[in-house]
Design a binder for these strands. Structure first.
Lengths: 145, 145
DNA sequence: ATATGTGCAAATGCTTTGCAACGCC
DNA sequence: GGCGTTGCAAAGCATTTGCACATAT
């Protein structure tokens, strides 16, 4: 129930070369730039199926856009993401998990699920901002939102 | 820089009578049902300005829709939300906050911000499910998504 | 008086879908 | 050969925006 098509392979390959969280559109755009011929709808459909299969991590940005990334850790984990460049650090927070489970239990909640994502500016970009990067240079093109 | 219009007042009043997280459209719909005459765009604009002013909590649902709620705790806090009925419990997690700050710091990240929301089934609805409520009754109308 | 807020409808932007052609297995 | 997959364009949705009109202060 999941065939190995040229497109599917190309998408996986593109993702494996990518370290940041990227939107479906950005991934599609990059593939076109790399000479791949893939329809945008296919990218959407494939990313969706891959994430459902647990082979991809999804992050819903503040504006509702979905961002995808192939993570090193295949289990449950969280992310520290740079708002400017999308640079991502994966981390675990076991104490936090148990604390949440406890709180939920106290209130009679079951069937839990949670989202925890941290956004900020990575070392490189917080430095740039300190230096007075008020006017936003030519980085508009590169940011993963 | 923020006038007291009939619409603004009505929206605040509606929110104060509401205990669950609701989307802009649901709030608008309810207001119409209550006999209020307010444009949808106004609801969107007002909810946005209120949340920016910190008078409202916003939650981005999994599908990207924004949900609003007037919370008791005006400071920083998190939510435990029932997937079925939207019932919400506010909670604090100070240890968790510092743990995240620490992790972010280790990686050189600054200007932090984070999202932490827990979803699950409240006592009432987890019981209903256990009882074999597979066919979903007439509750479709009431759920805040 | 005048800066703001409002309403409507059109425009946006991301994502999904219908459907015929296509290509793995 | 059959059934999942692809592509394109159209459709869907939540949200935003332009603009003329209304209205708080």
């Amino acid at each position: 129930m999941q065939r190995n098509t040229r497109q599917r392979t190309a998408i996986l390959e593109t993702l494996s070369r990518q370290d940041d969280f990227r939107s479906a559109q950005q991934i599609h755009e990059q593939m076109r730039a790399d000479g791949e011929t893939v329809g945008l709808a296919t990218v959407y459909r494939t990313l969706q199926s891959l994430s459902q299969a647990g082979r991809l991590d999804v992050l819903v940005a503040g504006d509702g856009e979905s961002l995808y990334r192939q993570c090193a850790d295949t289990g449950h984990h969280h992310h520290l993401v740079c708002r400017e460049c999308g640079r991502t650090v994966e981390f675990l927070a076991p104490k936090l998990e148990s604390a949440m489970t406890a709180i939920a239990g106290e209130h009679g909640f079951t069937d839990l699920d949670h989202t925890l994502e941290v956004f900020g500016l990575c070392a490189e970009h917080s430095a740039a901002r300190d230096a007075g990067d008020a006017g936003g240079s030519a980085e508009d093109e590169a940011r993963p939102r």
